[in-house]
Design a protein around this nucleic acid. Structure first.
Lengths: 322, 322
DNA sequence: ACCAAGACCGAAAGAAACTTTCCTCCATGG
DNA sequence: CCATGGAGGAAAGTTTCTTTCGGTCTTGGT
């Protein structure tokens, strides 16, 4: 009989449509098998996943034959034994499953009132992840670099945002603070304006607005600009009112109808915040590292060491937040 | 302690890019493992495919431990034994391989001080997106459903979180409020406790902590439970101190060393918040719709209509936030 | 400091799964 | 009618997996 290569031998590593080579091989050898072995083969072809989950004893019984025959069968199709066959089957079953689900192209993203909860979770995770990914891909690194440089040397940094963007602003402020940059986050129209009025050429003001049209934020940023501060906008719509800023960092989130409640948008904004934060921390590495470690040390005592019956070792000491 | 689901139970089976849920589970339980078991876990995380191909004897030897420990490890992560774990790993390895051929090569996640800014942005977007995606894939929908039902009929909902998790809590509170659910978010230890003391059987308390060990949050949630309220935890480490909660929703974020500043973790938490929010909005469709529209209407006036020369019409009116 | 409780872990016995060996059965062709 | 050889199963042999048990090390409480 001509040599039929085993799955792991010289095989093309990446034909796009992955195929269950082992099952195919078995099928092609089917006619040349003895009756008892053929029963085994047939059963595996019928349901490889199930076969992978059975012990050799079980499989032999299912095929009304002996374990020895199964072993012989494994040898016939060029495996060293049952273990190896089983591993190959399990792997291929996984591939098949992966392909199956990957094939189902993602939903329109929009959520219907009668979607099942499983679908809802899938769609949310999908659109949220996409918002993050696309924001990263679309982010203008040159602008980012400029903003980072400007911030690194700023005397003071003001952050404006209302509604959901206020939380993003607060998050940014907290992070800046942790690496030793003086910054403030405001979400009250009056306070924003009064704070902006105190800025000058040495300062930076950052306005966060998904729509780019939030009056309070735009006004505060405008005021900051009038006072001479460098202005930065984080928005999904660079051509909106807030686009006048010196530097515009664009997010790429598409909110769907039902979820008009600022879901993907704030994740996209936070991604930008992460880029700012890490970029800054990196550009001021020595300072940041020290500051991060100091702050980490400070909150360490706020962790529970072992207050309940639980396996030893408290969760990673490294995480210093929340 | 709340039930921690096995890979095959009520869980979302398919974020687009297939996700290795077993490995994710192991990762989330890593900190709660004993030293010897942790070595085993680490080795599996490092190279699942190789682990799947090893016998228990081999694996034990590689980890410089006994086979008994490996078995114990399998039990800790809710497998019936080594065989089952091996099968799951083999299947996932297959999935990964199938996905790899189509997908892009993955960066190694960790950020070095001398990475270029472009690389930094790529890595951030990648890990952030992965955190969102994997959280969605690993989320236990049954638990989510229970939590949603409980919340929908609650008299009042308290949300606890400090540090970065405080912003997530505030975000959740804001969203709940928008669909007409009475809720409060606290981040001050004293206020948390006093608020928790006022809860009873009709109420729900939600504690948010990445590590699961933040003293303030855990104490407040404990107090709430003692008063009879239903308790919910959102954490990356279900076996941590906060795991006592009636219902545990697990996130799947891996913070990298440099970014120990709560980046991916809060995105993962927000993804869970989104699922809660949309799930609730959906289950109370009529009420939510009305409430959403009313609130949207209320903030509409806070948008700029056309205050400068700008191309298209103003961005989506539907987005009602920030 | 000392003891008790309990977590942790490996050695070894026991069970199950896998592999090899060997023997029987049976069809075939001289 | 008998040698021959392949198919297939029983059982012995080997490896892998699981359970049990006891020892060591912490930890928390006198």
């Amino acid at each position: 009989m001509a040599h039929i290569p085993k799955p792991t031998e010289g095989r093309v590593e990446s034909g796009i449509p992955q195929v269950p080579t082992t099952v195919l091989r078995i099928r092609s050898l089917l006619p040349s098998l003895a009756p008892a072995e053929r029963r085994v083969a047939q059963r595996i072809i019928d349901d490889p996943e199930r076969a992978a989950a059975s012990s050799i004893t079980q499989l032999a019984k299912d095929c009304a034959t002996s374990e020895a025959t199964v072993i012989r069968f494994c040898r016939t199709i060029d495996f060293s034994g049952y273990r190896e066959l089983r591993l190959a089957l399990a792997t291929e079953a996984g591939q098949a499953r992966g392909a199956r689900t990957t094939g189902a192209p993602e939903p329109d993203g929009d959520i219907n009132p009668d979607d099942t909860l499983v679908t809802v979770v899938q769609k949310i995770a999908y659109t949220d992840a996409r918002a993050v990914e696309e924001t990263g891909a679309a982010l203008d690194v040159e602008v980012l670099r400029t903003v980072i440089d400007t911030m690194a040397s700023a005397r003071r940094i003001d952050v404006y945002g209302v509604g959901a963007s206020a939380f993003v602003g607060a998050d940014l402020q907290q992070k800046l603070h942790r690496i030793g940059l003086a910054s403030f986050a405001w979400s009250d129209a009056h306070v924003m304006l009064t704070s902006a009025a105190l800025l000058d050429e040495r300062d930076v003001a950052i306005g966060i607005s998904h729509s780019g049209s939030t009056i309070d934020t735009v006004q505060a940023l405008t005021e900051a600009g009038r006072r001479g501060a460098r202005t930065v906008a984080i928005t999904n719509f660079p051509r909106s009112a807030i686009g006048f800023a010196d530097h515009v960092l664009t997010t790429a989130a598409r909110e769907t109808t039902f979820r008009s409640g600022a879901t993907a948008s704030r994740l996209a904004q936070l991604t930008v915040v992460d880029c700012l934060f890490v970029g800054l921390a990196q550009s001021r590495y020595a300072d940041s590292r020290a500051a991060l470690e100091t702050t980490a040390e400070a909150v360490r005592g706020l962790r529970i060491n072992d207050d309940r019956k639980r396996r030893r070792g408290r969760p990673d000491d490294r995480t210093t937040d929340e």
